[in-house]
Amino acid sequence: MSFFRKKRLFIILIGIIVLVALVGFSIRDRVNLTTAEQFVSDVIGVAQNVISTPVKYVAGIFENIDDIRNTYEENQILRERLAQYKGLIYEVQEIKDENEELRALLDKEDSIRSYNPIHATVTARSPERWIEQLTINKGKSDGVKVNMAVITAEGMIGKVQSVAPATSTVQLLTGFDEFNRISATVSREGGKGIFGLIESYDKETNSLLFKIIEDSDQDIEEGELVVSSGMGGVFPAGLPIGTVKEVVPDQYGLTRTALVEPAANMYEINHVVVVERLLGQDDEDEAEGEEE
């Protein structure tokens, strides 16, 4: 019994020594691996490669999806900023055009120093009467009165037809008929002007009809400027009305009528000046018959 116990202890001791030797052998720095170690290493490497390849592929798909999502979001942001940029460009251009128009109107004040200019903005135009009348944002409380001349930087566009406390309706020259007349003259430097009346607008020729009332042998030439004469007492003198296109006599050859192209663009009107004549206000009522 004692012999078998000693033999068991001896075997255990030998096993411990072999185990320690194997552990020490396996952890030391070696260049060459044993066959068993090589087999185990290869099996583990192949298994890792088999497992990691699909894992990397799936991870790559998710990364690509994230990249696509990020690219889409960045694209949306860039589109919004591009739209804002285009909007700013249009806004700047509109402000630039409006600024040029207002500057041109301010320059007109020098040519009408004897009169009070009332600056106004067009607020409405009826599609049915687009070339006949418009509405502005100045009225009786601003000093606007019926029959006052209305101009743009290019020239006269019409007269005030009716007045409310805060707004006014402007009758355009293109809406004039036989009941609307303007005392006018052909402007000539260093010479005598030829007087007449702007009586109506002819839609067939797109021209204002300037009836010459002065008995004069002077010929009117194409391109000459027709301006307000100021003789009516309401409109100031010197406001550009238009240029002569053609002169036609009546069927009896007794009178002459000039076809006048309006100086101002009647279709694109944004800002206007209502001209209040400071002199001759006492004669206004007497002159209304002539200027209307």
Rank of each mutant, 00 (worst) to 15 (best):
233 G>D: 15
65 I>C: 08
180 N>L: 03
275 V>R: 01
168 S>R: 04
106 L>A: 12
88 L>P: 05
261 E>F: 00
284 E>H: 06
119 H>Y: 15
100 E>R: 07
158 G>W: 04
177 D>C: 05
162 S>R: 13
93 Q>L: 08
269 I>V: 14
13 L>D: 10
291 E>I: 10
78 L>K: 03
191 G>I: 05
71 T>C: 04
64 N>Q: 14
277 R>G: 02
68 I>A: 14
234 V>C: 07
146 V>E: 14
270 N>C: 03
104 A>H: 01
60 G>E: 08
249 P>H: 09
3 F>N: 13
149 A>W: 00
153 A>W: 03
223 G>K: 01
179 F>S: 14
289 G>N: 11
40 V>E: 14
222 E>R: 00
177 D>E: 13
95 I>N: 08
161 Q>T: 04
225 L>C: 07
1 M>P: 15
237 A>P: 00
102 L>I: 15
203 K>Q: 12
199 E>D: 03
85 Y>I: 06
245 K>A: 07
272 V>Q: 05
210 F>P: 03
212 I>K: 12
29 D>G: 03
22 L>Y: 12
12 I>P: 01
226 V>L: 01
246 E>D: 11
2 S>D: 15
37 E>T: 02
134 L>Y: 05
190 G>D: 13
3 F>C: 09
143 G>A: 08
44 I>Y: 10
123 T>W: 02
40 V>H: 12
